[in-house]
Every structure is written in C-alpha cells, then in structure tokens.
Simulated scan of single mutants.
Amino acid sequence: MVRTPLTPWERARGERFGQLLRAARGDRSMVEVAAAAGVSAETLRKIETGRAPTPAFFTVAALAAALGLSLDQLVDACAPEPAEEPRALTA
C-alpha cells in the first residue's frame, strides 16, 4: 500500500496542531503528558514538531483529554486560513 504524499495544507495543519499541543502542555514534561494520554513520548514529540502531521483520531482525543482541551478547540485552532483551504476534488 502506497501512502499518498501530504499536501502543503495538511502539513501546515499538522504544524498548527503541534504548536497548539506544545502551548497547552506548558510546563508539563513531554513524558508526563504522553503517559497521561497513553502514547509514547516519541509519538508526542513527532506530533509537536510536525513530523507526524496526521495522527490517528484516538491519539488526538487522548492528547486533548490529557491536556484539558476539547475537540472543538482543536478543530477551531487547526482550521485552515482562507488562503490555504484545500481545493475540492473534481470528478
């Protein structure tokens, strides 16, 4: 199975998501937050740095819960800027 390359919009969204998690983590250590979410510190590190821009939904939900964020907050914070909205696919 070949994975399709990420679009610039998807990469930018992943970077915004990582920045949001890092800001929400504050003074808490990466290991502490990762353990609370049930993910590895390396997974959290990759997400925060944008190297894993499309984490699984359950990973996102677990990190949101560990950081006291709602999924609605994440959606709002990671929504595309008007200039970078993805183009609709045509049939």
Rank of each mutant, 00 (worst) to 15 (best):
V2A: 12
R3T: 15
T4Q: 13
T4H: 11
T4K: 14
T4G: 09
P5L: 02
P5G: 03
P5A: 06
L6S: 06
T7D: 01
W9M: 07
W9F: 12
E10H: 05
E10M: 03
E10Q: 15
R11K: 14
A12V: 00
A12Y: 00
A12H: 08
A12R: 04
E15D: 10
R16H: 05
R16V: 00
R16A: 06
R16N: 03
F17P: 02
F17C: 00
F17Y: 10
G18M: 04
L20T: 01
L20P: 02
L20N: 00
L20H: 05
L21K: 02
R22A: 05
A23F: 04
A24Q: 07
R25N: 12
R25P: 12
R25H: 05
G26P: 00
G26K: 13
G26N: 10
G26Y: 02
G26A: 14
D27N: 09
R28C: 07
R28M: 05
S29W: 09
M30F: 02
M30R: 15
V31A: 14
V31H: 10
V31F: 08
E32M: 08
E32P: 09
E32R: 05
E32A: 15
V33A: 11
V33P: 06
V33G: 13
A34R: 08
A35I: 05
A36T: 10
A37E: 03
A37R: 01
G38A: 13
G38F: 15
V39N: 11
V39L: 10
S40Y: 02
S40V: 01
E42G: 11
E42T: 13
E42V: 09
T43I: 03
L44R: 01
L44Y: 00
L44W: 01
R45C: 04
K46C: 02
I47S: 00
I47Q: 00
E48W: 04
T49R: 15
G50V: 06
G50A: 08
R51P: 06
R51V: 10
R51K: 13
A52R: 13
A52Q: 13
A52I: 04
P53G: 01
P53Q: 01
P53W: 00
P53I: 02
T54K: 15
P55E: 06
P55N: 14
A56Y: 08
F58D: 15
T59N: 11
T59I: 10
V60I: 15
V60G: 02
V60D: 03
A61F: 09
A61H: 13
A62M: 01
A62V: 01
A62N: 04
A64L: 06
A64K: 00
A65N: 04
A65R: 08
A66P: 09
A66D: 12
L67I: 11
G68L: 06
G68K: 07
G68Q: 08
L69E: 02
S70G: 13
S70T: 15
L71I: 09
D72A: 13
L74N: 01
L74D: 00
V75K: 12
D76I: 04
A77N: 01
A77R: 05
C78Y: 07
C78S: 11
A79W: 05
A79S: 14
P80R: 07
P80H: 07
E81Q: 09
A83Y: 07
A83D: 14
A83K: 12
E84G: 06
E84N: 08
E84H: 09
E84Q: 12
E85A: 09
E85L: 10
R87P: 03
R87A: 12
A88M: 12
A88F: 11
A88E: 14
A88C: 08
L89Q: 12
T90Q: 14
